[in-house]
Design a protein around this nucleic acid. Structure first.
Length: 520
RNA sequence: GCUGGGUUCGUAUAACGGUUAGUACUCAAGAUUCUCAAUCUUGCAAUAGGAGUUCGAUUCUCCUACCCAGUACCA
């Protein structure tokens, strides 16, 4: 029988979604779509202490910006679904709203002998840890320490009954089997074996807030939501044996999902995983969207606000730890869906390379139509106080698009096509604005002013070059004097390009201006 | 510390026992151009180390080193 592909992205709303998280979501989405299945968004907010306002909305908006729309869990308005409907039969998709369902599963495990009640207070556990710490060891709640702790396996039944009824800070812990080798398979890493003696009795459910921990909620919800593959970050690999054991304890082995653990995104330089700090330090965003910390008001930059196209961001992320098996690098989301394969996902962590991210954006910028880019550039011009007609901007964009990485670069590259230079680059002026050059350049300027041919680049360029050449003047020096007048520096478009764009009058003004400023 | 995972040019990766170890980004040089970009060409640069298995190891096994993760009533 063929199981329908159903995968989920299950973030915790404890802050903005990090680009590594976006990649996990992306791989889940690609896998689901490739197999004609469902991509589900589930919010894992079982830790009431770490809730951050706005984080959930941020996650959804970030995914939307990337073009990732969940099939289940989020409604048309972009909100987490709270009540079941035809499209979202497993609602609510927020674990805090599902809290009622977990207790009986935890109790079921106790009844089966796979779990037990533990009455140790946080303080008691803390001191047990401190004790071991003094001996240079780490306390683990397991088969060795279990009899010495206060739980339903060590206490007399009547005490257990009493504590269960009259206290509220007890938990249900998983009873880790003794000396058993858990044999697991990971879609990316292959076969893995772990002996249960190295594991501890994890808390599954807490009486204090009547909430499950991640492990229980995760397994129960994945089971209930009929998840077929769990694709998540590598940080979960150490708890995979527990999750396997949980499926076994519930008797759900037959429908247990397959697992794929993705490597982490690493910082560009040095060692360690990518963090917010690296972004600040090296000057690149680590978040898809800009985020303002609600408590401190501190802002973190985002790819969207930095001027990245979502297609470029997604493409770049996809290639970080995955490859199509050939030399292709540019993929649309649809093409990624076709080309993606779990076998080609890299086992090792990938160091993020901000330069390559820029390269991707440059490639996507070049693919955009001039019209689309003009639409994006117009508001920037307006901000700069420039009121240029659309057709003029379109011409400018056509000339400069290949020189830019971001739309925002357009202004730096081409501001002189909208406003006259306010100053002249000192070095360039010293190099070119010499009497022996500018006397010739001014004559060339006179030629341009008197040019009566068709007012377009080709014609003017040919005529101007012919004029200079026939006089046997140094082409570079003459042209750069003119360019200094037009641009303010010795860089930029061809003289004929600039002059035909700004027109004879403006050309004349800029020539007058440089003569007045730098003298002759 | 313990447990698990990982290791090909600076970075992302290809080569799933046989290649002069390929590609892209970055960087450098050259070509081109009226300059700067763009473009084109060329170049620099890697199998962590050591044992095995094999006619032959980047590829398989083991050891060492290094890196990462986990080791919470957080996810």
């Amino acid at each position: 029988m063929e199981k329908r592909t159903r995968v989920r992205f299950a973030p915790s709303p404890t802050g903005p979604l990090h680009m590594g998280g976006v990649r996990t979501a992306l791989y889940n989405y690609l896998y689901a779509k490739q197999n004609g299945g469902d991509f589900i968004l589930r919010i894992e907010d079982t830790d009431s202490h770490r809730f951050v306002p706005g984080a959930e909305e941020y996650i959804i908006e970030a995914l939307r910006w990337c073009g990732i729309y969940p099939d289940e869990g989020v409604d048309a308005a972009g909100k987490i679904v709270e009540t079941p409907d035809e499209r979202n039969p497993h609602a609510p998709y927020r674990q805090s709203q599902r809290k009622g369902i977990y207790r009986r599963y935890a109790e079921e495990l106790v009844a089966k002998g796979a779990a037990y009640y533990a009455f140790d207070t946080p303080e008691e556990l803390e001191s047990a840890r401190a004790q071991e710490e003094m001996h240079g060891k780490t306390f683990t709640y397991n088969r060795v320490t279990r009899p010495g702790m206060r739980n339903s396996l060590s206490l007399p039944p009547e005490d257990v009954k009493d504590l269960l009824e009259n206290t509220t800070d007890w938990t249900i812990r998983f009873k880790m089997p003794e000396n058993t080798v858990v044999k697991m398979d990971d879609m990316i890493r292959g076969h893995i074996e772990v002996n249960t003696d190295t594991l501890d009795d994890k808390v599954l459910w807490k009486r204090a807030d009547e909430l499950p921990t991640y492990h229980l909620a995760n397994i129960v919800d994945d089971h209930l939501m009929e998840i077929s593959e769990v694709i998540r970050g590598e940080e979960w690999l150490p708890s995979l044996p527990l999750h396997y054991l949980l499926y076994q304890a519930f008797g759900w082995e037959d429908t247990m999902p397959r697992f794929a653990h993705l490597s982490l995104l690493l910082k560009p330089v040095g060692n360690g995983k990518l963090s917010k700090r690296d972004g600040d330090k090296l000057g690149f965003p680590v978040f898809p969207l800009e985020w303002t910390n609600p408590e401190t008001g501190e802002k973190s930059r985002g790819y969207r606000e930095d001027g990245y196209f979502p297609e470029a961001f997604v493409n770049m992320l996809a290639m970080l730890g995955w490859n199509p098996g050939d030399d292709r690098e540019l993929f649309s989301l649809e093409e990624l869906v076709q080309a993606f394969s779990m076998e080609k996902v890299q086992k090792a962590g990938a160091k993020f390379n901000p330069e390559k991210a820029k390269w991707f954006n440059k490639e996507y910028l070049r693919k955009k139509s001039e019209e689309e880019l003009t639409d994006l550039f117009m508001p920037i011009l307006k901000e700069k106080g420039v009121d240029a007609p659309y057709d003029y901007v379109l011409k400018v964009v056509t000339l400069i698009k290949e020189r830019a990485t971001f739309v925002a670069d357009f202004w730096d590259i081409a501001s002189y096509l909208f406003v006259a230079p306010q100053e002249y680059n000192e070095k360039d002026a010293a190099k070119f604005w010499k009497p022996e050059n500018y006397t010739l350049a001014l004559q060339a300027a006179g030629f341009i002013k008197g040019f009566s041919g068709p007012w377009e680049k080709e014609a003017l360029e040919t005529a101007l070059e012919e004029f200079i050449r026939s006089n046997e003047w140094p082409m570079g020096k003459v042209m750069n004097c003119l360019r200094l007048a037009l641009v303010g520096a010795s860089s930029g478009l061809g003289i004929a390009d600039i002059v035909t764009l700004i027109g004879k009058e403006e050309f004349g003004r800029r020539i007058d201006n440089i003569v007045n400023t730098l003298g002759q």
